[in-house]
């Protein structure tokens, strides 16, 4: 008997269950199909404007910076200004995301834009988030040519653009959208939930920013 069979048999024996039990199988199948929601905290159920405010405040609480950009067309200039203001080189790496690709990059002439994955040589990465969660100020990013995962982790500074309408109150709402976008049971290779910049408290429990990932996280709420 293979280890797989041994393990499953031991589990069934310990539980007193039969392999062919249809009732058990139906219970599991319906749980997986329906994916019932549990308790959503009140702070995850706020109306539009308050939800976006909470999202920004929670991000600021974890040392991220947040700016609101009403018109998507202003993102390149605002990004150039942000880089200049923090003495960062005017060079970014980003994926092929349609929202990012459609921005008027010629408006920020000094900005050098590399399209593709990051290789560790870049200082600033720009991503577009699939969704956001106000409850904890969490960004959700899906991997792919649109937004390579390396852009989220290798550069020193991570700038994330997110449309205001993509900010949900709770995780469950974004997971439901993800199911619609990729199909039930399917996922992007990597789905990152990012809440703040990289940090470690492994030396004497003192919190320090910039462990292995980005030292700084900047979020642009578009719209």
């Amino acid at each position: 008997m293979s280890s797989r069979e041994t393990i499953l048999a031991t589990i069934r024996r310990s539980l007193g269950a039969n392999a062919g039990d249809r009732t058990r199988a139906a219970t599991v199948a319906s749980r997986l199909a329906e994916a019932p929601k549990g308790l959503i905290p009140a702070r995850g159920q706020l109306p539009d404007d308050k939800r976006i405010q909470l999202f920004a405040r929670m991000l600021e609480d974890v040392s991220a910076t947040v700016e609101r950009v009403a018109d998507a067309g202003d993102v390149p200039q605002r990004l150039a200004k942000f880089l200049k203001g923090h003495n960062l080189p005017p060079q970014i790496v980003r994926g092929e995301d349609a929202l990012l690709a459609g921005l008027p990059w010629d408006k920020a002439k000094t900005l050098e834009v590399k399209v593709g994955r990051a290789d560790g040589s870049e200082t600033v990465g720009l991503s577009r988030a699939f969704g956001g969660v106000a409850e904890t100020g969490t960004l959700m990013l899906a991997s792919g040519p649109e937004n390579p995962t390396t852009v989220n982790f290798l550069p020193e500074v991570h700038v994330v653009a997110i449309r205001a309408e993509d900010i949900a109150g709770d995780y469950e709402t974004v997971f439901a959208r993800l199911r619609k976008a990729y199909g039930k049971g399917k996922m992007p290779r990597t789905f990152n939930l990012v809440t703040g910049a990289s940090r470690s408290a492994d030396i004497e429990q003192t919190l320090l920013l910039g462990a292995h990932g980005p030292r700084r996280l900047h979020v642009m709420i578009v719209g």
Partner: peptide, 24 residues
Amino acid sequence: ATGQEFSVYTTLSTGPKHPGDPDG
């Protein structure tokens, strides 16, 4: 665990990289 509202990185990984993915 750490008294954080949420940890910085919660990462969901599914299978190897997809065709066309530039990394993974």
